[in-house]
Nucleic acid binder design. Structure first.
Lengths: 334, 334
DNA sequence: TTGAAAGCGCTAACAA
DNA sequence: TTGTTAGCGCTTTCAA
């Protein structure tokens, strides 16, 4: 692989001049600039990233922290982020957090070894040491979608409590009174969705039935399927279910199918997130939409201004959710 | 961020010694080794990746080339690869190829700027210049799943022609005679699946009907949905469809639903790939399984031996596919 | 068993 | 407008 020195030699100039050309610095003779550019083209020379990174003390890449078990929502968010970040001329680097005990710390080590320009966190982090360390890095850290309240970084998400609230209201408005919830355990966004759901129920004069809430202990459709089996084994009278994520909802529909319950004829299922896949399912998934593209655009915009030296004026970016009606929910009795 | 110098200073030793400790070199006083290790622990020091990368002339990371529009199969393959690669102590770096004209070349530039240890290609590359350049890099390049015949690198995939053949045989064995195929256009793996399918049909004495093959012009479920609409608009008499990928199959099921045709009661749909999601759908997707985990394990194993200086004894790693029967296909008339 | 010194490829002062 | 020089953080001879 050619180095800047060789290009310089070929051009009969010094490496500095080549560097100036490559970085669009002023004070270069136009003719020489052309010559060097041609040489670069010809040889296929590409500057060594590590070397630039070292001298500039930055890597022109932003880290993205995700759990090893990637959800569709996280994938969509990542895709959108990647595209936006690329448009800024930056690279993206995925850091997977494995579920093992030291997973988060391990991730931190890798994080620290790069001179990242910024970090997007797309999951809930539980280790406070990591949080502190992230803060200590002195680079922008932005938290997307699955937010933990009280996070010491700007967060970008829908109002999860309101989402849950609206879910219950929507199902109630359809005439359903016996509602279940399938959620994925302890994650904050998840708990908020459930508590909003509960608030709406209680506000509507319905006593909260703890047995109508099922912890799926995970985010995969398979978890949702098992959750539906347990839930309906315990509460066969339910006519509608809110699943805290679309993937869970997919599994719930499946579980119901295995139980011989038709969706939406006998049971309505409401998802959350609005992953692209939802519209291609049968029945199409009715869901509360999380505007992933908007979230990504805002995150990258904020990163950019932070990179430009500004500190963000907001710490909580809350995006509007909205109902997307497809076919998995139906008015009771219709 | 602490540097190796500061650790050395704290330990009262030279940077060389610290480096030796960090890299498990011999000839270090055990007591001093302990002291340095403690210091590293304490300060949270992590070596600068760029600096190591520069001096060692390698980045300890393997590049993974994927299309910007990531399919579920590609995602599953990537996940498996990432896990295996991490176990080797290497990092993984995604390179997205955008569909734009210069997408592949742009990707190449980024590739060359890193000193990658190896490259996994998870998509079909069309630009010969890229292929040549990849070869010229002098590092292992391994091609996974979506293979182009004649690729100058080791490839890892199922026998796509045989997959298509078995698809037709399976559907024929179920009593279906009026078969359709939905495929995703020009990609080689895709064409092979179709031609195997065709061969089986013709072998069974059925004339090939070009109108029963529908190009979905893409890999998303939405493409599959539209393809189903066109296909059944033209050939309403079809009783079974083979979709060249599971995602296409999902869309086909959806399209059929929109047309009022029940799957599998009226039309059978056979997918290909066996993505995890398939089992959670309603109906569960019957599909030809591609052993993604095995493929990933083999790819990483081969990379490892190439890194160890061996050159691979095989160039075509062909994995066994197998039928996974779920609920989307049914015997005709039953 | 340890340290000094050189150098990886690049950029940025500074001098010319 | 260009070249010289120093140095980013690390590893690795080579010498002690």
């Amino acid at each position: 692989m050619a180095s800047i020195k060789e290009i310089a030699q070929l051009a009969g100039m010094s490496p500095s001049t080549v560097s100036r050309v490559l970085n669009n610095r002023t004070y270069v003779n136009p003719a020489i600039r052309e010559r060097i550019l041609a040489l670069v083209q010809e040889t296929g020379y590409v500057p060594n990233h590590a070397a630039r990174s070292m001298v500039l003390n930055r890597s022109f890449t932003v880290g993205v922290i995700v759990p090893e078990a990637f959800s569709l929502t996280q994938l969509e968010l990542f895709s959108a982020l990647e595209r936006e970040v690329a448009a800024l001329g930056l690279l993206t680097h995925l850091f997977f957090v494995r579920p093992e005990a030291e997973g988060e710390l391990r991730c931190l080590r890798r994080l620290k070894s790069e001179k990242l320009d910024g970090i997007f966190v797309l999951m809930e982090l539980t280790d406070d040491a990591l949080l502190d360390a992230l803060q200590g890095l002195g680079i922008p850290v932005l938290w997307g979608a699955l937010t933990r309240p009280g996070a010491p970084f700007p967060t970008f998400s829908v109002d999860d409590e309101a989402v849950g609230f609206d879910a219950a209201r929507y199902l109630g408005g359809l005439g359903h009174e016996r509602l279940g919830v399938v959620h994925a355990g302890a994650a904050a966004f998840n708990r908020l969705r459930v508590s909003g759901f509960r608030r709406a129920r209680e506000g509507a004069g319905q006593a909260w039935d703890e047995g109508a809430a099922q912890d799926a202990a995970g985010f995969t459709p398979e978890c949702g399927r098992r959750a539906a089996l347990s839930l309906f084994g315990r509460r066969p009278e339910l006519t509608a279910v809110f699943a805290a994520t679309d993937e869970l909802a997919i599994g719930v529909v499946r579980g119901l199918f295995e139980l011989g319950r038709k969706v939406p004829d006998q049971v309505s299922v409401l998802g959350c997130g609005d992953v692209a896949l939802g519209r291609s399912l049968t029945p199409g998934l009715t869901t509360l939409r999380q505007p992933v593209a908007d979230i990504a655009a805002r995150m990258v915009g904020t990163l950019q201004s932070q990179l430009g030296g500004e500190s963000p004026d907001e710490l909580r970016f809350v995006f509007a959710h909205r109902l997307v009606e497809r076919e998995s929910c139906r008015r009771l009795g219709s």
